[in-house]
Structure formats: structure tokens, C-alpha cells
Design a protein around this nucleic acid. Structure first.
Lengths: 340, 340
DNA sequence: CAGCTATGAACAAACGTTTGCGTTACTTTT
DNA sequence: AAAAGTAACGCAAACGTTTGTTCATAGCTG
């Protein structure tokens, strides 16, 4: 019979014949309201199923309690795990999450950034698209003093907050693990040289070799564009190397899959593979890497969201002067197969 | 130097020494504003980087242009594909998406529903959690006349809008395909009997047999709880059947994986498998099903979002009388391996 | 009993925008 | 030349809530 508009504070005031301000204060347990009045107000509010109109409140103090999240692809398990972390923190701290995928399209990303601004989000969490090469679209947020935190895929510009994983230590551990296992010739199928991620892997590899007093042979590191063809090419190079590797570290699980399948098709069963954990599906495979480097996307998401919300609630940059930038690196970690 | 608060319509009015209403109308291309004034306003607005405060607008007409989406797990590729469809439609129709995962926890789902209500979303899109058994938490939305559309996992209650897929036709096609291929004994590893999805698969199977004038043998349909152990048990039953199947239809890709792996470990290579497409990863596997039933999650998401936004913009239930409920069934379809 | 302090509650402004209506100052019609 | 029309703009209310300030009444002190 009365399925219409939500109850407002005004109606409560009218029914109880008191002023709106009294109702407001009563509901917020203000000290200057008498106990009896408080009770009466609360009782009626409960009966009428009163819920404060968040839109009005948000409008009033110019806060939306919404954080925007822009990431490339939810179907990549790294990101779907990350968003879970972001969400958990956001809900815990009473924020909600406005989500959007760029699908690795720079133009779409720009549009989404604009939309987020229009929606007046309190802060923005971004993992930039692969194709993004300019970054002016984020400037507006800086101008408006709305915090932006980048995670995982961070743009190569200064003065930004970010959370990323350092794959160097994980790679170090991986190579070290293989060396301890007796391997002496370890190949690596790395990603494109343009990615920071490739660089970090390379550094980890080199440092592990040095730490074990072994010579670093650059010809055992082959780059690839992550496609199957490119992976097979890299495998050919490695398998025809004068020092044929007995173990191979691959850029990610897809590359590992391609490489292992190719090796198997050649009848090679004795190569140990180590990869980077992006896919839970790896658990279901016939042949799996013997170890993988975990990047903790859930943890990264949590951390990034925490930093963002901290920034939102930070007293506005007082002197307008230099601001501290959060640069958090989540260490990666080697996980042996069969261990959760 | 001026990195502070966003520009408002008031400031523009003050600078131009005209009234706010004129500025508002000028920006909205109202007919009763002179061309010169319009130009002056728009020019200044652009210079000051003016953006209308959506919070104020939303508050004014009591609409948020936000739709809430609650689904179980983004890491399931079905849902990450569905959310892409939802997003695409939402953005196209100028809505934004407030996302939340229930992680298949009924309690969390209740909390989220409450939160969505608090946030005053204009509509709600829900795929219910596995563990949800009561549905009163959705009643409030009905009371407040806020449309709710369920998709894929729909609750067993009356008078709701929903979009779901019918797996019967897809299963029919799958079994039919196998029969045409010459198979005469087709096993099925089905899911728990409690799921509608299991029932639909069974119906499709039966109808395909009948359509081909073959007798339906219930003992060739084995239920399982989707775990690896359970799948292996089912396989054992099938393989020891007096009529050993030459082809098997499995409930989903995981079950297919388990079953194929087990078959291979027994040295059986000659069984044709057909599955239901949930996982893109299947493309990377060594042994894949020869066909799979596609459920078009992206399409389902789009459809559901479209219906929801239509409902939002529909003239309010005029007479308060009977309302039409959208019950849309997206047909599933058999996809042969190697075809996209 | 005049003057004071608590106590409890009302008033009114503010947030940014839209919009119905009113008010000018022209221009056109008769 | 008076009436009517029209173009261009201003005024003010409204949306729901919070909050600084003011106001009234009671109880108290001296």
C-alpha cells in the first residue's frame, strides 16, 4: 500500500511535531538532545524504515565514499584476485567500488577516467592499459587534489603513488632454487624488453648467478612477445644452444604452457620449468612447472586500496608544498609445486 | 596555484555577472538564452574546466545513475565475461556499475544488498550465491520500487525478473552431434541433482536420444559433486558399464579435465568428450573436448543490464497493479573445437 | 528575586543544480 | 498608438541533510 518514496527526516519531524534538526541530531546521538526525544525519534525511524539519503549527505559534504577502479581485464586472474582485495578493504572501510575495465584500450581508458571524474569519485585506483602511452588524462585528478594510486601496471612518470610487485627477488629465488637442485645451465624465456617486468626478471636471474659464483651467459636469455609462435622460436634457440639448458624459467604461465607442450612434442621430458603464477588453472594441467613465482595480487589490491583511502582521509596537503608519494613494493615469492 | 575545489556554476555566474539560472540554461542549450550569452558561458566554462557536480544533480532528481551488481566470484570466467557485458551496456546507456562479490557466502550477500540499498542504486543485478537459501533481503527493493534483475543463478521464487541460459538446447545439440558422428553409447557426467542446470542437461540428453529414435538408458547418466574424486568415481562407473560409452558429456570444463586426465592415465585415447564452455584456458590444453556448449555470458550480462535499465526508466508502475516480469532465456549453443 | 548557567530544542544557512514563473525591453500586429 | 507577442534573462524554490547559532525554559546561586 505504501511502497513509494523512501522516508525522509522531514516526515519524521512533522509526525513528531519537532524540527528536522532535532531529528537529525537525535539520530546521530548528539549530546544536546534529550533522552526521551531521542528514543521517540529512533523508534519512529525504525518503524518507518528510515534510511538516510546518502545522495544528500554525499552532496552536502562533497564526498561520495566511492573509489573508482580502472583495470585492463577482469578475466585475467591476476586482476580478478586484485579486485577482491580492493573490494574487501573498501567495504571494510565503508567505501564502495566503481568498477571499469579498459580492455587494454588506451582510448577507452581515457573515457573511463573522464567518467570517473564526472562521477566525482573520492579516489582512483588504476592499472594502466598496455596500449597507454600518454598520461595527461590523470593530470586533472592531480589538479583537483583527488588521489590516484596505481598498481601493478604503473606508468613511467614521476610523482605518483603506486603499489607494484618486485619480481626480482622471486626470480632470484627461482633461479637459486634451480641451481641448488643441481641445474647448471638455466634458460629464460623473457617478455618484451620494453616491460619493467622483463627487466626485473633479468636482474633477478643475473643476481642469482652471481650469488652462486657462476658466470652469467646473456645468450641463455631469450625475449619473446608472449605468443605461442614466439615462444616456440625462443625454445628452438634454447634447445639448439651449445649449452642446452636443463631448466627453463618462463615469463608467465601461458609461455610455460606453450614451451612445455612444445618440449613434450619433441619428446623432451627432462626439462624443469619454473613460471610466474597467474593462473589457478595450472593446477589442473598434466604437466606443470615445478615451481612458480607468486605475485600476491590479492595482497597488492588490499595494499593499494588501503593507501588510497588513507590518502583520501589525509588532511589536505597543508602547505600545498611537497607531498610524500607512496611507493610500495610487494615482494614476490617462490612457491614450490604442490604447496599452497 | 589553483588546485582546489572544482568550479561551480555559481562562480561562472558571478564572473559573468549573470544569474545562475542563466548559466545553467546556457550550458544545457535552453532555447530562451541568447546566442551571445551562451557562447560567453560555454567559453568560460571550458576555460575553468567546469564539470557539473553529479552528486548535486543526482540528489536533485533522486537518481544516481548507478546500478549495483552482486555476483559470486569474478575469478570464474563466466562472471568476468558477464560483467563485461553489463559494463558495456551500462556505460553505453550512461550508467555506472557498483560492483561487489558475495564469494558464494549468503551472509556477505545480505550485507551487500543492504549496502546497495544504502548507496541508493537505481537498480540491482544479482546472481545469487550458492549458499543463499532465503530471499527476504531482496524484498526491501521491491517495496521501494527499485528494480532487481537476476541472472544465471536465479532464486526459486515467483514474481522476479531474470535472465538465464537454457542448457537444454545446447545439450540436445551436443548429444545429437555425437550421435551423428556415429556414437551410439554416450555417457554423461552430470552435476548435483539439486541444480536446475543438471536437470536441463538431462532433459537435453533425453530429448536428443528420443529425436534419434534411440532408447534412453538412465544408467549412463552419473551425477557427481564436481570434485576430482567424484569425477573419477563417475568415470569408473561409466568405464565398467556393460555398455562402455564411446563418448562422454561432462558437466563443465573442470569435470572434463579430470575425466580426460583419468582416461588418459588408463591409456584410453578413443573417447570423445563434450563439455560446457566456462574456461578460455581450454584452448591451451593438450587434450580438449571436441565440442562444447557455449552459454554466452557476455550476451547474458548485456541482456540483463538492458532489461534493468529499461525497468529503471519505465514509467512507475502506474496503477500499482500487476506488473509484467521479464523472463529471458538465452539459448546455449554447441561450438565445435577449433571454431571461435 | 534578580541574575546566572545548563539543558533541550528550534531557526536558518549551506551544498550545486534545475526549473516554473515573473519581469523587463523590444518588436510586431491591428 | 495601443495591444499583443516574443526574446532574454532574473528570482526563488526545491531536493535531504548537517551544523553553527539563537532562543526559551528550567533550575540554581547569592
Amino acid at each position: 500500500m505504501t511502497p513509494d518514496k523512501p522516508t525522509t527526516i522531514k516526515e519524521i519531524a512533522k509526525i513528531l511535531k519537532i524540527s528536522v534538526s532535532t531529528v537529525s541530531r537525535a539520530l546521530n546521538d548528539h549530546s544536546s538532545i534529550g533522552l526521551t526525544t531521542k528514543m521517540r525519534v529512533k523508534k519512529l525511524a525504525a518503524e518507518l524504515n528510515y534510511e538516510p539519503n546518502q545522495k544528500a549527505i554525499q552532496f552536502l559534504h562533497g564526498k561520495s565514499f566511492v573509489i573508482g577502479v580502472i583495470l585492463p581485464e577482469l578475466s585475467e586472474s591476476f586482476f580478478s584476485a586484485a579486485i577482491s582485495g580492493i573490494e574487501d578493504i573498501a567495504y571494510k572501510r565503508n567505501y564502495t567500488v566503481l568498477l571499469a575495465q579498459s580492455h587494454d584500450d588506451a582510448e577507452k581508458e581515457k573515457l573511463l577516467v573522464a567518467k570517473m571524474r564526472t562521477q566525482r569519485v573520492d579516489g582512483l585506483l588504476v592499472s594502466v592499459s598496455k596500449t597507454t602511452s600518454t598520461f595527461e588524462h590523470f593530470e586533472i585528478f592531480k589538479k583537483l587534489n583527488i588521489p590516484v594510486v596505481f598498481f601493478d601496471r604503473i606508468p613511467p612518470i614521476k610523482d605518483i603513488h603506486y603499489v607494484s610487485s618486485n619480481l626480482e627477488t622471486g626470480t632470484f629465488d627461482a633461479v637459486n632454487f634451480l641451481l641448488k637442485k643441481g641445474h647448471r645451465t638455466i634458460g629464460m624465456i623473457n617478455g618484451p624488453a620494453t616491460l619493467v617486468a622483463s627487466h626485473e626478471r633479468k636482474e633477478g636471474y643475473i643476481k642469482a648467478m652471481i650469488a652462486n659464483r657462476l658466470k652469467f651467459d646473456p645468450s641463455l636469455l631469450i625475449g619473446c612477445d608472449l605468443s605461442e609462435e614466439s615462444t616456440i622460436e625462443a625454445m628452438d634457440t634454447l634447445l639448439n644452444h651449445r649449452r642446452k639448458p636443463t631448466a627453463i624459467v618462463t615469463f608467465n604461465d601461458y609461455v610455460a604452457l606453450f614451451a612445455m607442450r612444445y618440449a613434450k612434442s619433441l619428446g623432451l621430458q627432462d626439462i624443469d620449468f619454473v613460471s610466474y603464477a597467474n593462473l589457478p588453472i595450472i593446477n589442473y594441467m598434466d604437466y606443470t612447472p615445478i615451481a612458480s613465482v607468486e605475485q600476491f595480487p590479492y595482497k597488492q589490491g588490499k595494499k593499494a586500496a588501503d593507501i588510497l583511502i588513507d590518502l583520501i582521509n589525509k588532511p589536505r596537503n597543508e602547505s600545498g608544498a611537497e607531498q610524500a608519494y607512496f611507493n610500495v613494493v610487494v615482494e614476490s615469492e617462490l612457491i614450490l609445486a604442490g604447496h599452497k
